[in-house]
């Protein structure tokens, strides 16, 4: 149930950039680059997502990215430098469109299932006739029990 609208945070950060008094790059930029780099501390997360407090790899790496960004390097240049330093295996791929497609496809599939369910179980609004004649003997009992209802 919890949704933290991070893209909105980004928007808010950009518009509120005027208030930020530090000439540093925003955390979102560091995050974007960090997501492309594996954390080498032993976890299998990325530099951006490793949350081990005081991680000996991720934290200095984030500082490094911040400095490189401030120095005006592009994302690709930063990644290049990291791969030179730690080997190409540190690079992580960008999220592909498959990641997006499947969840939405599941909603579509669900809609189809609902359609099938409705088709299968819908019935024509029965003519609003009285209770079928054969059941009229229950009419009295029903009326009696209904009266006791409230």
């Amino acid at each position: 149930m919890k949704r933290r609208p991070a893209p909105l945070v980004l928007l808010a950060l950009l518009t509120l950039g005027a208030f930020a008094q530090m000439p540093s790059k925003s955390n979102e930029d560091i995050h974007r680059v960090g997501m492309r780099l594996a954390c080498l501390c032993g976890c299998s997360d990325t530099v951006a997502s490793c949350k081990m407090p005081g991680c000996h790899f991720a934290e200095p790496a984030r500082v490094e990215i911040r400095e490189m960004l401030s120095a005006g390097l592009s994302d690709a240049q930063i990644l290049e430098r990291f791969s030179q330093k730690h080997g190409a295996s540190i690079l992580r791929a960008e999220p592909s469109s498959l990641g997006w497609l499947i969840p939405y496809a599941s909603i579509g599939l669900g809609l189809l299932m609902i359609y099938a369910f409705v088709r299968r179980y819908s019935r024509k609004p029965a003519p609003l006739a009285e209770i079928p004649a054969g059941d009229s003997r229950y009419q009295e009992q029903i009326e009696k029990e209904l009266a006791n209802l409230e």
Binding site: R3, R4, P5, A6, P7, L10, H31, M35, A38, S44, D45, T46, A48, S49, R92, A93, E94, P95, S96, G99, W100, P103
Partner: peptide
């Protein structure tokens, strides 16, 4: 390739 999805991905979805 190990592709991690970050919090922003989850939020957008």
């Amino acid at each position: 390739e190990k592709i991690s999805l970050d919090a922003a991905w989850f939020n957008r979805l």
